[in-house]
C-alpha cells in the first residue's frame, strides 16, 4: 500500500508540476487563454477539463485492448466528445450564465491537445486506475496555470477577484488605473509568457530544450 501511494504521488507531481502540460509540453493553451478574463469562468472550465481528462483516461484505458490501433484516434475522439457533450449539457442545466460566457470553449475541450495527448501517450499503455490519476493530474496542472492567469488578468485588468472589487479605493484616488490591456487578448499572451519564464527560472523544473 505504501508503494502504491508513492506511485500515485509520482504520477500526480509529474502531471501537476514537473511535466506540467501547459508550461512544459505546450499543450492545450488555446482554451487556457480564452476563458481567463474572469476567475469564475476559469474555475468552471478547470473543473470541466479535469473531469473530462480523468474519465477519458479511465474509459480509454479500460478499452485499450479492444481498440484496433489504426482507428484508435477516432475511438479516442468519440469517447472524449461524448464526455464533453455530457459536460456541456450539465453546464447548460445548472450554470446557464457561465455556460453562455464559455460559449464555444466547452466544445473545444474535444480538441484540447492535453486530453488527446494523454489518451495517446498514457491511457493506451497503462492500467485504468493509473490513467485516471494521470488524467486528473494533467487536468489539475492545466487548472493551476489557468487559475494563475485568470487571477492576474482579473486583478490587473478589472481590479476584481471573483467579481468583487479588491483594489482599495484610495489606490484609485492616488491615480492607479486598471490595465485595460489585461482584459484583451494580448494580456493573456504576455501573462502566460511571463509565467513560463517564472516557472523555468525556478529550481527543479525540466527546461524546454531549444
Amino acid at each position: 500500500m505504501e508503494k502504491n501511494l508513492s506511485h500515485y504521488r509520482d504520477i500526480m507531481t509529474r502531471g501537476i508540476w514537473s511535466e506540467n502540460p501547459v508550461a512544459y509540453q505546450v499543450l492545450g493553451i488555446c482554451s487556457a487563454l480564452a476563458v481567463t478574463v474572469k476567475m469564475s469562468t476559469a474555475v468552471v472550465m478547470s473543473i470541466a477539463l479535469t473531469l473530462v481528462a480523468a474519465f477519458s483516461g479511465l474509459i480509454i484505458s479500460t478499452m485499450r485492448h479492444w481498440i484496433p490501433s489504426n482507428i484508435r484516434i477516432i475511438v479516442e475522439l468519440t469517447v472524449i466528445a461524448s464526455l464533453v457533450i455530457v459536460t456541456d449539457q450539465i453546464l447548460k442545466a445548472f450554470l446557464y450564465d457561465i455556460s453562455k460566457q464559455l460559449s464555444i470553449f466547452v466544445g473545444l475541450i474535444i480538441t484540447n491537445c492535453i486530453i488527446l495527448g494523454r489518451a495517446e501517450a498514457y491511457a493506451m499503455a497503462n492500467n485504468p486506475v493509473d490513467s485516471f490519476v494521470d488524467g486528473m493530474a494533467n487536468g489539475l496542472g492545466y487548472s493551476m496555470i489557468l487559475l494563475a492567469v485568470a487571477f492576474l488578468r482579473e486583478l490587473l485588468g478589472s481590479g476584481q477577484f471573483f467579481g468583487f472589487s479588491v483594489i482599495p479605493r484610495f489606490l484609485y484616488d492616488m491615480g492607479f488605473q486598471d490595465m485595460g490591456i489585461m482584459v484583451l487578448a494580448p494580456g493573456a499572451f504576455f501573462i502566460i509568457g511571463l509565467l513560463v519564464w517564472l516557472k523555468n527560472s525556478l529550481p527543479g523544473v525540466s527546461h524546454e530544450k531549444k
Binding site: A23, V26, I181, L184, A185, P186, G187, A188, F189, F190, I192, G193, L194, V196, W197, N200, S201, H207, E208, K210
Partner: peptide
C-alpha cells in the same frame, strides 16, 4: 535564459495581437 522558446513566442504573439 528561461524565457527562450515557448515563453518568448507567447510574448511575440502578444505584441502581434496588439
Amino acid at each position: 535564459a528561461g524565457l527562450d522558446g515557448f515563453g518568448f513566442v507567447m510574448i511575440i504573439a502578444g505584441l502581434m495581437a496588439m
